[in-house]
Amino acid sequence: MMAKKDTLQRDPDGKLRHFLTVEGLDRAFLELIMDTADSFASVTEQTVKKVPLLRGKTIVNLFFETSTRTRTTFELAAKRLSADVLNVNIATSATTKGESLLDTIRNIEAMHVDMFVVRHAQSGAAHFIARHVAPHISVINAGDGRHAHPTQAMLDVYTIRKHKGDFHHLKVAIVGDILHSRVARSEIEALKTLGAKEIRVVGPRTLIPADIQSLGVSVFHDLTEGLQGVDVVIMLRLQRERMNGAFIPSEHEYYASFGLTETRLEKAAPDVMVMHPGPINRGVEIDSKVADGERSVILQQVSHGIAIRMAVMSMAMHHEGVGGAA
């Protein structure tokens, strides 16, 4: 009746065709992505920062929403794989002229491209595009609405793995605007699949989706309680427009309740890691002392983003996966 996510993003042999969501991918597959990223990490440290894996391929960064970090790291990752990269910023382009999403895709497809890296404000946009592109084109989801941001989640768990090794003993708290966060949803799926001991979401009720417990997380509305004994804290960005939608009264009050300070962090495990997908709002969700402090791995996340994106792009382009000849 309908294409299940997993048959859409993996072919019948389990090989990656598109990378749309972490959901439905098993643990071995997520580890393969991270192992592949490991193998690319050294490329970045060479004098000639390139490998010829995607030479002759054309990758289009199709961004219907503005982005700096994600777009540039995708671009860098593609260039290090020797692909040709085209950046199309639709937020200021065709759709504002009334072109439909499908027409935009068809037009760029006609330029004989091999991969779309898509960011879109609507949940499900990457699935929609994957379902309608020509069979040889791979789609990588760079964030769709509130739904998923799978490469961000992968670079986050990759960063955690680098520091902690194994996931089974880890308690992870994700703090802030869970409701609007595609990052949180993908992180929850990735951490769950990798076997994290406990996943907590922390925030005011207005920013926690109804029935989020069904995803296997525990919910806290008090930051101090939520941080008790955690090994990893992932802070989410609070978007300023949330003040207008009656989600929270003010930045000031939000910081007083949910801002991550050194004092609050003392409740966490002594070797806690502090993460943030960026861009950070200093003094809104996180104190500068914490963001720049020794427990923060925020800038490492950015570097790891390149290796993870190289891994995912090369795997999708070469239809790689667990359990068969790649």
Partner: peptide, 15 residues
């Protein structure tokens, strides 16, 4: 519908 499915799929819920 605002519930487990919309929570997981990131679809804006109707309570």
């Amino acid at each position: 519908h605002e519930g487990p499915v919309s929570a997981r799929m990131g679809l804006k819920g109707i309570p």
